[in-house]
Simulated assay, not measured.
Amino acid sequence: MAVHLSFLLIFTGLAGSHSITTVSKVSVKAGEEITIPCLYDSKYINNVKYLCKGYYRFSCSTEIRTDSQSISEKFSISDDKIQKIFTVTIKDVTNKDTDYWCAVEDIGRLDDKKYFQLPATGGTPSVSVDRQEITGFKGGNININCYYRNFGVMKWCKLGRSCVTGSSGSIDGTGVTISESGPGVSTVTMSGLRTESSGWYSCVKEDIQMPVHVTVTDRPTTTTPAMTRSLTTLTTRSLTIVSASAVNHNPVSADQALITVQGEQQSPSHHLKSCGIRLSVIFIVMVTLFIWFIFKRHKQRKVESSATTTAEGEVRYMRNTSGEPEVSCGE
C-alpha cells in the first residue's frame, strides 16, 4: 500500500513540489495581462525555467523557455538569479488561459512544476490592484490599494515568507498596516522600507491572490541650477570671509564661517531680490562717482581759469609802474 501511494505521488507530480513556490489562483479581467512570479530553490539557479500550459502535469505544453531565442507575442519570461525568482507575463488573457505550471527543467529526473490557476472574468476581478509594480525609497512608505468583491479577511503576504493577517504586523523588519479605505478597498501601508523589503507580495482574499512587486531604492539627490548658483555664491563668500580675516589678522573659526554661510542660505527668490538691490546700489554709486568726477573737473577748470586771469593782471600792473607802454599778453 505504501509503495502504491508513493508511486501515485510521483505520478501526479506532488513529489518535490516544495522546491517551487507561486500563487495558487489569480483572477484577471479578460483582455488584460498579468505577471506571475515563481520562486525556486537555490539548486535550480542554473536550470532552464519555462511556462507550461494545461491542466495535467505530464501533458501540459511548453509555451516559453528561458533558453529560447524565439519571441512570443503572448508570453514573456525572465529569470532573476539573485532573487531566485523567474516571472512569466501572459498578455490578452482569455477564458482558455486557465491552467498553467511554473516549471524547472531537471535533467535526469522529472521536471519540477508548480500549478496555478488563472480564471478570466468579463467583469471586475475578485481581487485586483492599481498596478503590479510599486517603487519606494529606503526609509520611506508605500501604499497599495487591494480591491476585492468578496467578504473575508484581507492578508498581505510575501512570496515564500510570512503574512500579515491583522491590522498591523511586520515582514522582514518592515512595518505593515492594513486598513479599510472604503467599501471593497483595503489599503496596505509598508513603512520604514529597507533593501530587504524588495520582492514579490500578494493581496490575499480567501483563495484568490494578486501578486505585486515592490522595489526599494536609494532616494535620489537632485541639484537644481538655482541651488548650484546659491552654493557657488556661498563658497565665494566663505572664501572672502577667510581672506578678509587673514588680512586683518583676525582668525575666523570654522564654526563661525559655517554659521555665516548657513545664515546666508536663503531661498532663490531672496537671492534674486538681493541681487537686484545690489545692482541698484552699484548703479547709484557709479552715477554718484560720475557726477562727483564731473563736478571736480569743472571746479578744477574754474580754478585754473581764475589763476590765469590773475597772472595776466599782475603782468599789466608791473609794466605800468615801470613807465613802459602797456602790452597785453598775446598781442
Rank of each mutant, 00 (worst) to 15 (best):
residue 36 I to R: 08
residue 35 T to A: 11
residue 151 F to A: 11
residue 269 S to T: 03
residue 157 C to G: 09
residue 206 E to H: 05
residue 9 L to K: 11
residue 291 I to C: 07
residue 40 Y to P: 12
residue 282 I to F: 15
residue 185 V to C: 05
residue 50 Y to N: 05
residue 32 E to L: 11
residue 229 R to M: 12
residue 44 Y to F: 15
residue 52 C to E: 00
residue 24 S to C: 06
residue 250 N to R: 13
residue 148 Y to G: 07
residue 258 L to Y: 07
residue 184 G to L: 07
residue 22 T to D: 00
residue 300 Q to V: 12
residue 111 D to W: 02
residue 276 G to H: 07
residue 278 R to H: 03
residue 277 I to V: 05
residue 321 T to R: 07
residue 144 I to S: 02
residue 207 D to W: 00
residue 155 K to T: 04
residue 331 E to Q: 09
residue 72 S to A: 06
residue 27 S to F: 02
residue 196 E to V: 14
residue 122 G to L: 13
residue 19 S to H: 11
residue 69 Q to L: 10
residue 151 F to L: 03
residue 325 P to F: 02
residue 137 F to M: 03
residue 69 Q to E: 15
residue 67 D to S: 14
residue 274 S to L: 07
residue 166 G to P: 13
residue 244 A to M: 01
residue 158 K to D: 06
residue 204 V to L: 02
residue 4 H to Q: 14
residue 284 I to E: 13
residue 278 R to V: 05
residue 148 Y to P: 05
residue 222 T to K: 12
residue 116 F to V: 09
residue 46 N to I: 00
residue 110 L to V: 09
residue 310 T to P: 07
residue 203 C to N: 06
residue 16 G to Q: 00
residue 246 A to W: 01
residue 304 E to C: 04
residue 192 G to Q: 03
residue 289 L to I: 10
residue 179 S to R: 05
residue 316 R to D: 08
residue 18 H to N: 10
residue 198 S to Y: 05
residue 61 S to K: 06
residue 7 F to R: 09
residue 125 P to L: 08
residue 134 I to F: 02
residue 100 Y to E: 12
residue 19 S to W: 06
residue 63 E to P: 13
residue 297 R to E: 05
